[in-house]
């Protein structure tokens, strides 16, 4: 684990849903630190709390208790607007189902987030084309999501996430809907962004293809951290959880 800046710090993080007898404890006191420039996989079986934790770390949800600091901000002290600001300017999201706006082209999907950030029209267009070119989508810039393959759509989603050069990229099962070739290509591309631009990546996944690329694997089970292992890049990681 590097000694660099701490981007995420969670202490005794708890998230409960429902009340009384129907209450579900999705996170049971998570302690976690993610440093700047890490490439981390968050693994575990379905229902282990991966997405719930990702929602917490991405300032999409409020913890029931515990302390959570992301990018130097104590999320417990931020209101909804401040959390939106944090996500908009400093966190990039990649979703399992891509979630591109279907009526906008690839370029417009990327531009839209830059427009939300207040980037002026000329600059956002330039940056959108640049990042799409970077990810090998230059020729597809004016195509709509329905005209793109799943792999291409996910690359557009990545372009949208990284266009504003955020410090932190959170990805929720980014390869779940992709075949092996596209999944591998996507991970290689994200790895390259990480290496070249020093972005911090955190993936919630149970896909071995993602884990293979991770430098650190945090395993969750029943809302708790089961293990937290650092590994050399490229080293194979095998756990029983891969097979779930």
């Amino acid at each position: 684990m590097s000694e660099s800046e701490i981007l995420i710090s969670a202490e005794k993080l708890v998230r409960e849903f429902g009340h009384g007898a129907t209450m579900v404890r999705a996170l049971r006191g998570i302690d976690l630190q993610i440093h700047s420039g890490e490439f981390v996989a968050l693994v575990g079986p379905s229902g282990s709390g991966k997405t719930t934790l990702l929602n917490q770390l991405g300032a999409l949800d409020q913890p029931s208790s515990g302390e959570l600091t992301v990018l130097g901000k104590n999320l417990n002290q931020l209101n909804k607007t401040q959390r939106s600001e944090l996500r908009l300017h400093r966190i990039g999201f990649v979703f399992q189902a891509y979630n591109l706006v279907p009526v906008l082209t690839a370029r417009e999907n990327v531009e839209f987030v830059l427009e939300l950030q207040g980037v002026d029209a000329t600059e956002r267009r330039k940056r959108a084309i640049e990042v799409l070119d970077e990810l090998g989508l230059g020729k597809d810039a004016d195509r709509r999501p329905e005209e793109l393959s799943g792999g291409e759509q996910q690359r557009v989603a990545v372009a949208r996430a990284v266009a504003s050069r955020p410090k932190l990229i959170l990805a929720d099962e980014p390869t779940a809907n992709l075949d092996t070739e596209n999944a591998e290509a996507l991970m290689t591309m994200m790895r390259r962004l990480h290496d070249e631009q020093k972005m911090t990546f955190l993936f919630a996944t149970h896909d071995p293809r993602v884990m293979r690329h991770a430098e650190r694997i945090i395993t969750l089970q029943d809302g708790s951290v089961l293990s937290d292992e650092a590994k050399e890049h490229g080293a194979e990681h095998h756990t029983d959880l891969e097979l779930t």
Partner: peptide
């Protein structure tokens, strides 16, 4: 709903 929720997740404000 899903489309809007994704955009909100990306940081789009309610007023937008």
């Amino acid at each position: 709903g899903r489309e809007f929720s994704a955009l909100l997740a990306l940081g789009m404000k309610r007023r937008t």
